[in-house]
Design a protein around this nucleic acid. Structure first.
Length: 971
RNA sequence: GCGCGAGUGGCGGAACAGGUAGACGCGCUGGACUUAGGAUCCAGUGCCUUCGGGUGUGCGGGUUCGAGUCCCGCCUCGCGCACCA
């Protein structure tokens, strides 16, 4: 093709890259020795005396479509970082496994008519090949797959740990805090010894209870429990979903199908017991603030009070209405109450008959009496989808129940309404409405003609016709026994809570948005639960010795799916069809001997496998334990010092040193994994309290996509670019104008770019360099295939600086570097080290290009400069670096070679350019000695012709920042 | 609506601590070498300019000798949350 036989072309890159990938694999250079177990290697471990580092990518799901160029971004970044740290002498663990279970794998299998294992295995082969071609330095011995029974036996084992524990809020933790998981056997012991009182106070002891009664008590404590509760049923997917998997307009995150609330018996995880620790410990990890905020938001902790409002009159069984409020200070301003339509007290409260005489017609919903009005409103509310509620926005609807309650502070009687702006799922499902200080209540009061009392003095200029939610002195807030007037909000809250407690009207409390985690799915392709039910219907965990409970082969693994709109349909787990698997005779070793059981037929969600995979990476071959204590502590045990930015006195929680992945898992995966990790910590299985000590959220690579006049995407590769009449680019497809947008790469936008095409046209090193050079890692940026040549040109120039393109001979000069070259080199080393440390790969590349360009200008490239440059390029473009390193005469791979160190003496310049400003504007430049004194510099500057000219009228001030700047201000 | 983040050449993006704005790359312009150039190399490239200079980091103000960077008020875009009491 070219007359220069030894030019760095795509063909040569291909040759070099494949050869080095083979060498790396056969030598196992990227294998990280463990301190203990089958992967231990004391000699290797001793050699890596720079410490240890665990670098983690988000667990990839092997998609059937293969990779596109956006996928490798994070993997390249972690690889560069890992390779750099290996050169700093660290024992770096970087590996990649596959999240092989789950809904998408099953859907893909259903589409292709093959068993999910077959399609998943095939997809893994494709993906592994594409990733290998990228030149990732992974420890292949640790490449686990969640569908492997040797892996999921431990997923099931963790489930059993969770099932067999309960959360003791009073138990002290090592850190002095209270609340931790304990084995359920300890709860049994406490009940049995009488140390802990039984919930039902009927004089019977633990031994007097029936098996079923005991099971009920224990199940109400277990961290994993089956319960009949309203859950998210998605007929279109044929499975139930967790709250986190449902979008706020009531559809499934995956597939965008409608989701309905159904009462079903499902497995739940008591993640809510960990709400406080999940929120508090965010202070101890180094994550983007944005992601921390998203988690805090999802947990939704708010401090406030519960207040009881006695119901007026005699209603049989009517307890006082308990409300949750974050503003107990505004109690004097409560002028009505609102219950959620589904609130259980409503049935008891609503009086029979017609409206009391004088009832405001606006309150009646146009119905003759309270019962008809409430029934009608409840029916209408239950029919409304979340979408409809959203469309209605802030328009307040509701209806009077006919009942009244007493404000404990004022003694006033307050009408009780039901309205759908109060949600059953939050707080107590009932509120005290304080229109003066709450916008929603204000609007409701407007619609229903209810009184408004301000109890906080609004700030000056606050509109008369709006609620005031800010801080200010309390007003209108006093009775015989308490006077809040004049107190600012925080003080008034505290005083009111004290008063409520004293009088028995309420207490301080904390409320959370977080709900328990719905953990079961009605799918085939997931981990079976290690749970069997006896003939009474009680759930039993199987003994550890029976693990793994293998996923049985089934005649038909496809789930029963339904019309997506069919809310009345019910889930049918595919495993339920395998009668001879479901019905078993087992001895659970609990003293009951062989019994008949039915297996749990639900499977786990695919979060299960990805909740703990990083732990298995640490000790993948361990047959006896999930991970050995020594290996866990070595890699992710707590460090001596806390992460940057943590509050003073914070203890380090341990965890993965660097986790890179997309922000789409900010609440789901990252929250679930933290929860499991904390349970394992409480039970003593790990020494670290958090899984991910440092998390970095990468941006996405987007690509141009084009739509025709009907809005349909057209094949992006066939679009031609021109210049429009306005000078801006214009685009046409088959002669017709199309519009451009930037979006996710993929089939749906017809803008797919595969890494395979890039390997063929440029090689993996060029692709790696291009992706890292695009911009900051945390930003999303557009893909531009045309621009990749820039990265290739850099590597070609690098190659040419070392290898003669005509002869293939190494052409570096053996003579030492001259001083200017040495200075450029060491400045580059200094800058590149800093950039690598901070994941600033784009700027590191810029510095390397500058150095390379400087070397290109020399008559001959000095060996030392070439070698140091090759070492610095190695993390980014490892294949070409290895090849050049080898051609420069080194027998060993550069993987563990020392990264260049800058000589501080060479970082100090002898002379610098000093900028001469006049009134802050640059007017001149002079070369001065780097160590010039302020006085000398001032003197030199003032003597310059331009300065003399400007200061003819005199000098006001001279600012000297030796040696780089002088600013002269004339009179 | 609330919260967070970001606005710098034709494009992606640099700019440590307030101190030479636009590093590096793409694209573009010109040149060299060439049968050829979509290869390679060299030079140039914010805008305006009477070639002195002027002007310039979303807009308007402020602090400062000096502001992309700090403060105040707007605008636009992106992300998250969204009747959470």
């Amino acid at each position: 093709m070219s007359e220069t036989a030894h030019r760095y072309t795509a063909e040569l890159a291909d040759e070099i890259e494949l050869a080095w990938q083979d060498r790396w694999e056969s030598s196992g250079v990227f294998n990280a020795p463990n301190p203990q177990g089958s992967l231990a290697d004391p000699d290797e471990l001793a050699k890596r005396d720079g410490g240890h580092l665990l670098v983690l990518d988000m667990f990839p799901y092997p998609s059937g479509a293969g990779l596109h160029v956006g996928h490798p971004l994070g993997y390249i970044a972690t690889d560069v970082y890992s390779r750099y740290h290996r050169m700093l002498g660290k024992n770096v663990l970087h590996c990649l496994g596959y999240d092989a279970f789950g809904l998408p794998a099953e859907q893909y299998a259903v589409q292709t008519g093959q068993h999910p294992r077959v399609t998943t295995e095939a997809n893994i082969v494709i993906m592994a090949r594409q990733l290998r071609r990228l030149g990732l330095g992974l420890d292949q011995r640790r490449s686990i797959q969640t569908m492997d029974p040797d892996y999921y036996r431990w997923t099931q084992w963790i489930f059993l740990q969770i099932f067999n524990s309960w959360y003791d809020r009073d138990a002290e933790r090592a850190d002095g805090g209270r609340g931790r998981a304990r084995p359920i056997s300890e709860l049994v012991a406490e009940y049995s010894s009488g140390e802990r009182a039984l919930p039902s106070d009927d004089g019977r002891g633990w031994e007097d209870l029936s098996d079923l009664e005991r099971a009920d008590i224990l199940d109400s404590h277990r961290l994993a429990y089956a319960s009949e509760a309203p859950v998210n049923w998605c007929p279109g997917l044929g499975t139930v979903l967790s709250n986190e998997e449902v979008t706020n307009d009531g559809r499934s995150e995956r597939g965008n199908f409608p989701v309905f609330k159904r009462n079903l018996r499902q497995w739940m995880m008591r993640i809510t017991d960990y709400s406080d620790r999940l929120a508090d410990d965010l202070d101890r990890v180094q994550w983007p603030e944005k992601v921390k905020a998203m988690q805090r938001n999802w947990i939704g902790r708010s401090h406030g009070a519960r207040v009881a409002f006695p119901v007026v009159g005699t209603h049989e069984g009517a307890e006082p209405i308990e409300v949750f409020t974050t503003r107990p200070d505004t109690l004097f301003g409560a002028t009505f109450m609102v219950l959620a339509p589904e609130h259980p007290l409503v049935d008891i409260l609503v009086p029979e008959g017609e409206w009391a005489p004088g009832t405001n017609p606006a309150w009646t919903g146009g119905k003759p009496g309270p019962q008809t009005a409430v029934t009608a409103y409840r029916r209408a509310a239950s029919r409304k989808s979340d979408v409809e509620r959203q469309i209605e926005g802030k328009d307040k609807t509701g209806v009077f129940t006919g009942a009244w309650a007493t404000n404990p502070a004022t003694g006033e009687q307050l009408p009780i309404f039901i309205a759908d702006y109060v949600l059953m799922g939050y707080g107590t499902g009932a509120i005290m409405a304080v229109p003066g200080q709450d916008e929603r209540d204000w609007h409701f009061a407007d619609v229903f003609d209810l009184p408004k009392i301000r109890t906080v003095q609004p700030s000056e200029g606050h509109p008369e016709d709006e609620a005031f939610t800010g801080d200010g002195p309390a007003i209108n807030s006093a009775n015989d026994s308490i006077d809040l007037n004049g107190k600012p909000v925080a003080e008034a809250k505290a005083a009111m809570i004290d008063w409520l407690v004293e009088r028995g009207h309420g207490q301080a409390t904390v409320s959370y948005k977080l709900r328990d985690w719905l953990f079961s799915r009605q799918r085939y392709w997931g981990e079976p639960f290690p749970i069997v039910f006896d003939t009474d219907g009680s759930a039993h965990g199987v003994p550890e010795s029976m693990l793994p409970i293998e996923l049985p082969e089934v005649p038909d693994y496809s789930p029963r799916t339904f019309d997506p709109e069919d809310a009345q349909s019910s889930p049918e787990p595919p495993l339920g069809r395998v009668e001879d698997w479901v019905n078993v005779e087992l001895d659970l070793g609990d003293g009951r001997g062989v019994q008949s059981y039915r297996r749990e037929t639900n499977t786990m969600p695919n979060w299960a496998g990805s909740c703990w995979y990083y732990l298995r990476y640490l000790d993948p071959e361990n047959r006896d334990e999930l991970v050995s204590a020594a290996n866990e502590e070595y890699w992710i045990g707590p460090r001596d010092s806390a992460v940057d930015g943590a509050p003073a006195g914070t203890r380090d929680p341990g965890g993965v040193d660097l986790y890179i992945g997309g922000v789409e898992h900010a609440v789901l995966h990252l929250l679930y994994a933290r929860f499991w990790h904390k349970v394992l910590f409480d039970l003593g299985h790990v020494s670290s309290e958090e899984p991910f000590r440092t998390y970095f959220s990468q941006g996405y690579i987007q690509a141009a996509a084009f739509r025709d006049d009907r809005g349909q995407p057209v094949e992006a590769t066939e679009v031609e670019e021109g210049v429009g009449a306005d000078g801006h680019p214009s685009f046409t497809w088959r002669g017709k104008p199309v519009t451009r947008e930037f979006g996710k790469i993929g089939k749906s936008l017809k803008n797919m770019v595969s890494p395979d095409e890039m390997y063929a046209a440029y090689g993996a090193d060029t692709l790696r360099l291009y992706e890292m050079g695009l911009g900051p890692l945390d930003q999303s940026k557009p893909w531009d295939t045309r621009a990749i040549v820039g990265s290739q040109r850099f590597l070609q120039r690098l190659w040419r600086n070392v290898v003669d393109e005509e002869t293939g001979e190494v052409r570096v000069a053996e003579a030492p570097m001259d001083e200017p070259t040495a200075r450029v080199l060491h400045r580059t080393i200094d800058a590149v080290r800093r950039d690598y440390d901070e994941l600033g790969f784009n700027t590191a590349i810029a510095r390397l290009i500058e150095l390379n360009n400087a070397l290109t200008k020399l008559d001959a490239v000095p060996r030392e400069a070439a070698e140091q440059l090759v070492l610095m390029v190695a993390p980014l473009a490892p294949h070409i670096a290895e090849e050049l390193w080898s051609r420069l005469g080194h027998a060993e791979s550069l993987t563990h070679e020392d990264f260049p160190v800058a000589d501080p003496a060479l970082l100090v310049e002898d002379s610098v350019t000093c900028v001469i400003q006049i009134k802050g504007k640059v007017r001149d430049r002079i070369e001065v000695a780097a160590d010039i004194s302020e006085d000398d510099l001032r003197e030199q500057a003032l003597a310059l012709p331009k300065v003399l000219e400007a200061t003819a009228g005199g000098v006001r001030t001279v600012i000297v920042r030796a040696p780089k700047l002088v600013n002269v201000v004339p009179l």
